[in-house]
């Protein structure tokens, strides 16, 4: 398979849940996307956006109402369950593991279900255990591990199945900073060295920004953004500046700024003044400086606010909500 082969094609996926009293929830609403082999895709969205439902429909754990799902070009529905040889997953919220078995026994069991035997893959299993620093815990029952170690073991068990496509629904839940960094490193390595395709859902923007080149943002069951992380971030790159003055609010500053920059704010506490301005064009910085100099302002500090994925995400979801409500 070439590096650009498509690993996953989702076309017009729709899933409706019927609740008591004829109420129905469109958990996934006409969602389409494609993932190339070796890609690490981030799935973002507020609670209830439909991330887990999308993943479970792809895995055949839920039956979609409509839509077509292909894995490496083969229809999931037509080739179920054999098609699962390509897929493994860490599922959100559930245990994923036998708590009464040891780490190693869990690995052997779940890999064995995928036909990956310890006879041929022992070195790989040991490698995974080392990658996640679980060597000391190899023969400890899972119920005796900490939350984060359990989570890591779930990820190891999914990776041990050696499937080209891996789904991780909230894998960083309960991980401390260091462990989360460790997981990120492993995921990046898996994608680049083993050419695995990984789909990660997380509420942790740092993780997504770090490991995924591309993200899909879901909101109320629909895709509201599907782009490279860097493009999304630059889309919302605002030239927001904050300037602190060492004096009470200079006379006429508010009016002068407001007439030139929409939404500029000036606040003062009697001894210092804080100015917040969104610059639109590159030359605007000079205009701003001119206005300040004309009023003889004493500048203490100028800072520039960075845009990151989190800001972009919040902005996209907020706009989407507003659109939805005004429709």
């Amino acid at each position: 398979m070439s590096k650009t082969a498509t690993a996953l094609d989702v076309t017009s996926l729709t899933k409706v849940f019927h609740e008591r009293g004829n109420k129905s929830v469109k958990a996934v609403d006409n969602v389409s996307f494609h993932v190339r082999q070796g890609e690490v895709l981030g799935l973002l969205g507020p609670n209830g956006a439909g991330k887990t439902t999308t993943i479970k429909c792809i895995l055949g754990l839920m039956r979609p109402n409509a839509g077509d799902i292909k894995v490496f070009g083969e229809s999931v529905e037509a080739h179920y369950p054999r098609i699962l040889k390509n897929m493994s997953a860490v599922l959100e919220g559930s245990r994923n593991l036998y708590w009464r078995l040891t780490v190693w026994e869990n690995i052997l069991f779940f890999a064995g279900l995928h036909g990956v035997t310890s006879r041929d893959n022992k070195a790989h299993f040991e490698h995974l255990v080392r990658l996640f620093s679980l060597e000391d815990k190899r023969d400890v029952e899972v119920r005796k591990l900490s939350q984060g170690m359990k989570q890591k073991t779930s990820v190891v068990c999914a990776l041990a199945r050696r499937t080209p496509l891996v789904f991780l629904d909230e894998p960083t839940l309960g991980l401390d900073v260091e462990t989360s960094l460790e997981l990120r490193a492993v995921l990046k390595q898996m994608a680049s060295e083993e050419n695995r395709t990984i789909i990660v859902s997380s509420h942790n923007m740092d993780v997504i920004q770090d490991v995924c080149k591309r993200v899909i943002i879901l909101s109320q069951g629909r895709i509201v953004a599907d782009d490279h992380v860097s493009d999304l971030v630059s889309l919302f790159e605002t030239k927001a500046y904050r300037i602190t003055l060492l004096e009470p609010v200079p006379e006429g500053l508010q009016e002068a700024l407001a007439s030139r920059f929409r939404g500029a704010t000036v606040t003062g506490d009697g001894t210092t003044t804080e100015v917040k301005v969104n610059l639109l064009e590159n030359d605007d910085i000079y205009v701003l400086m001119d206005i300040l100099r004309d009023r003889g302002a004493i500048i203490d500090e100028i800072s520039h606010e960075e845009t990151d994925l989190e800001k972009a995400f919040l902005e996209i979801v907020r706009r989407e909500r507003n659109n939805h409500e005004s429709r």
């Binding site: 754990l61 369950p81 054999r82 699962l84 599922l91 593991l97 779940f110 279900l113 036909g115």
Partner: peptide, 8 residues
């Protein structure tokens, strides 16, 4: 659900 992911 993990058992349900078995290819056989």
């Amino acid at each position: 659900e993990q058992l349900y992911l078995t290819p056989s």
